[in-house]
């Protein structure tokens, strides 16, 4: 164990000389091999659940209860995926998830960008108070508002609609805070120079402020995408038994219930549901990490 902790030093240096591998000589090489072994073992543990799920999803129905479970899909049966897609309605659920998530992400970005702009660059009465009001929403978990929100949505006639699924999430206190901070870190002279050039609010916002705050906007987008895609409680409550707008997360519950005797199909559905975000993770890892750690580390 001690040797595992010996290189807890991260890549943060003030000197400009490129310092590559920490001590790469003689025992350094053995240490590197040891590190790889340890990391690979840990990676295996983290990945095993997903891996076994993939293997099981490819098993032919009659082999699923076969013990011990096979390590490799010897005769992969891809039909489970098409079954999940069509009979399990996963195609529809995925489409619904895409629609709902797109509405939430773009809506959140839109409201957040304008509000953050106002709080960062404009002066108006009750600005501080309104900002605190905005922030205070972070203290109210959505679960706490569930009872009345369901009633409200029903009264608005939005039960079982995309509106009901998405409208309550079209604003975010956390996002507004984050983007306002990013805006405020832009040099004041930018705003003044833009004013001298005769830029109005919109031109300044979209031509200057927003492009400069792009990393934060990207982090925010990925963060809200993740939240929206993985929502469970609200979609469950608000989509009732309507297949037409049910999201993929609720679809999994449905799949689990209806395909109980076809576990391979359920697992195929799980992989279908997980794949889009796993791919996005690989592409947008940096933005995601930034969004997730924004509150933790300055």
């Amino acid at each position: 164990m001690p040797s595992d902790l010996s290189t807890i030093s991260p890549a943060k240096r003030r000197t400009n000389a490129p310092r590559g591998q920490h001590r790469t000589h003689k025992h350094g090489r053995w240490r590197a091999i040891g590190s790889y072994l340890l990391l690979s073992a840990l990676a295996l543990i983290v990945l095993i659940p997903l891996y076994i799920t993939v293997v099981n999803s490819l098993l032919q129905g009659n082999l699923i209860a076969h013990q011990p479970p096979p390590l490799f899909p010897v005769h992969p049966d891809w039909s489970t995926y098409s079954t999940a897609w069509t009979e399990g309605d996963l195609g529809i659920y995925l489409r619904n998830s895409v629609i709902a998530t797109s509405i939430i992400v773009s809506g959140q970005l839109l409201t957040t960008i304008f509000a953050a702009y106002a709080f960062a660059f404009l002066e108006f009465p009750f600005k501080r108070t309104l900002f605190v009001v905005m922030l205070s929403t972070m203290m109210i978990p959505f679960e706490v508002t569930l009872v009345t929100n369901l009633t409200t949505i029903t009264k608005l006639g939005w039960y079982n609609t995309f509106a009901g699924l998405t409208v309550p999430f079209l604003a975010t206190g956390f996002g507004t805070f984050l983007l306002r901070q990013a805006f405020r870190q832009l040099p004041k002279e930018l705003r003044e120079a833009a004013e001298l050039d005769g830029y109005g609010h919109f031109r300044f916002l979209f031509r200057i402020a927003l492009p400069l705050a792009r990393p934060t906007v990207a982090a925010l987008a990925v963060f809200s995408f993740l939240g929206a895609w993985n929502q469970y409680l609200w979609p469950l409550v608000v989509t009732g038994d309507n297949n037409a707008i049910r999201t993929v997360q609720i679809g999994l519950k449905q799949l689990q219930a209806t395909q109980a005797n076809q576990i391979n199909v359920t697992l195929a559905g799980t992989i279908i549901a997980a794949a889009p975000l796993l791919i996005l993770l690989i592409i947008f890892q940096k933005q995601l990490v930034r969004g997730l750690t924004a509150g933790a580390v300055k």
Partner: peptide, 11 residues
């Protein structure tokens, strides 16, 4: 190691 962050509770 980050991968489970994108797997939902449902999955």
């Amino acid at each position: 190691f980050s991968s489970t962050v994108v797997t939902s509770v449902a999955i």
